[in-house]
Amino acid sequence: MIEVVASLSRGPVFLAGETLECLITFTNPLSHRSTSASSEMLAWASAQIHCQFHASENRVMLPSETPKQDVQAENETVLVPNRGERGQCFLATPPKILFCDLRLDPGESKSYSYRETVPVEGPPSFRGQSVKYVYKLTIGCQRVNSPIKLLRVPFRVLVVHGVEDTQFHHDEAVAPSNPFLEEEEGTKKDSRLVELATEMLMMATSRRSQHLFNITNARGKVGKFCIFKTIYRIGEDIVGTFDFSEGDIPCLQFSVSLQSEEHVLEKYQRRPNQPASLTAHARHQESCLHTASTHFCLPIPLSATPGFSTDIVALRWRLHFEFVTAGEPMEPPTVPENQSEIITWTGAEQINVDTFSWDLPIKVLPTNPVLASYVAQFSGANSIMI
């Protein structure tokens, strides 16, 4: 038996256009139970990146296509990276051969480095209710006269628009950040790509300007809402404030939810006027009777998918507000002057209330892939025995 271990060197999250590097190690382990260990032989091994697309049959109606034959079923020597996977292969890089005719003695191991640029034309990683875009690195290995064995390493892709059009000058990428540390040319370019993407995201999300909204219903003014920006990166906190001091209608309770909307484009909808799929990521609820001002803070999870759009689906973000207001004015509690005894104020047993909601669209952008790697659901390393 040969053990194959694949490990992503920089973590399981990458920017589109960045170079993925994976160290693949083949080992013929020593057997402690048997003294008759022998050499092991592999005919070949190759690696390939592919994006797997899957659509929900209940929500998405894809155009019918002629079913493709599984090449792997006809020829056991051909690598089909998505064999046995659900859905269809959305895009794939050309396969790269790691070796041919590898012989390993007992206890011997050999490592190979696989490098490939993550395609810029693909969508970001996304696991929604209507569609899924899943990226994987697949390593195929085969013994002589044996079927191909596949080792898959899933990873996450973030897309920052505009970075793929940037041309790096030679003198712009020659100086490493540490003068005592030599870097390969590809590493320099990837480092510069991540730095440029981070700068673009910082510039887009650092602009602050006060946005004021009047909260009103059919009876009158409830209060004011203030937020300082509407563009955020995943991992940031959304902070907003409420001012109910000048409201004519008492607000008894409010809630704010951070939601993503998954819209299937009209021509691919399974049913006419199909509603968007909503996913709540954070929620704040507060009782605010006789409250002059208050605030909320909602974190955007690093594991969330930033907004994007493809030919089939669009992902958008919003803040969803719900307000519960009193049907009539309510006097605040008063304490008489020179009161010597303790007074307990008790709220009303019954209040006629009105409810209404409001949605505020916001933009959610990616972040530094290194930061997103800390909360990734993938380990970045997998192994099989063949």
Score class of each variant (00 low, 15 high):
Trp358Val: 02
Met1Leu: 11
Asn368Pro: 09
Leu302His: 09
Asp70Ser: 13
Thr294His: 07
Gly122Ser: 12
Leu23Glu: 10
Thr230Arg: 15
Glu331Cys: 12
Ser277Lys: 06
Thr310Trp: 11
Arg270Gln: 13
Tyr135Glu: 04
Leu104Cys: 10
Val80Pro: 02
Ser125Cys: 06
Ala47Cys: 15
His32Phe: 01
Arg270Thr: 14
Ala218Ser: 14
Ala304Asp: 08
Asn368Val: 06
Ser113Asn: 08
Leu98Gln: 11
Gly347Ile: 11
Ala73Glu: 02
Asn58Glu: 15
Leu252Ala: 14
Glu184Ala: 04
Ser109Arg: 09
Ser379Leu: 11
Leu79Lys: 00
Ile384Glu: 06
Glu184Leu: 14
Thr205Met: 08
Glu3Ala: 09
Gln72Lys: 05
Arg127Asp: 14
Cys297Gln: 08
Glu65Val: 04
Val222Ala: 09
Gly223Thr: 05
Glu121Met: 06
Pro272Asn: 01
Leu265His: 15
Lys224His: 09
Leu193Val: 01
Asn58Ala: 13
Leu62Val: 07
Ser383Lys: 06
Leu158Cys: 09
Pro147Tyr: 09
Ile2Met: 08
Arg115Leu: 12
Arg192Gly: 01
Val256Arg: 13
Leu102Lys: 04
His281Met: 03
Ala92Lys: 03
Pro29Lys: 00
His54Val: 12
Phe14Ile: 01
Val4His: 01
Asn82Arg: 06
Asp190Leu: 10
Gln129Trp: 08
Tyr133Pro: 01
His170Gly: 02
Lys188Thr: 05
Cys226His: 03
Glu341Trp: 12
Asp248Ser: 15
Ile215Val: 12
Arg156Val: 01
Leu315His: 02
Ser177Val: 07
Thr77Ala: 14
Glu184Cys: 11
Phe308Met: 05
Leu158Thr: 03
Pro94Asn: 08
Glu183Gln: 12
Ile300Asn: 05
Val335Gln: 02
Tyr112Ile: 08
Cys51Leu: 05
Phe155Ser: 00
Glu236Trp: 10
Ala92Gly: 04
His284Asp: 14
Leu302Gln: 09
Glu116Pro: 12
Asn178Pro: 00
Leu91Glu: 01
Gly128Gln: 06
Met200Cys: 05
Lys149Phe: 09
Phe242Val: 07
Leu365Glu: 03
Thr325Pro: 03
Arg283Pro: 00
Glu331His: 03
Val159Glu: 00
Pro306Val: 10
Ser177Thr: 12
Val78Met: 05
Pro176Met: 00
Glu184Lys: 14
Gly87Tyr: 06
Arg233Val: 04
Leu8Met: 15
Asn352Met: 14
Arg127Pro: 00
Asn338Arg: 00
Ile342Gln: 08
Gln210Arg: 14
Pro366Asn: 09
Phe323Cys: 02
Val194Trp: 02
Gly84Ala: 05
Met203Lys: 10
Val353Trp: 07
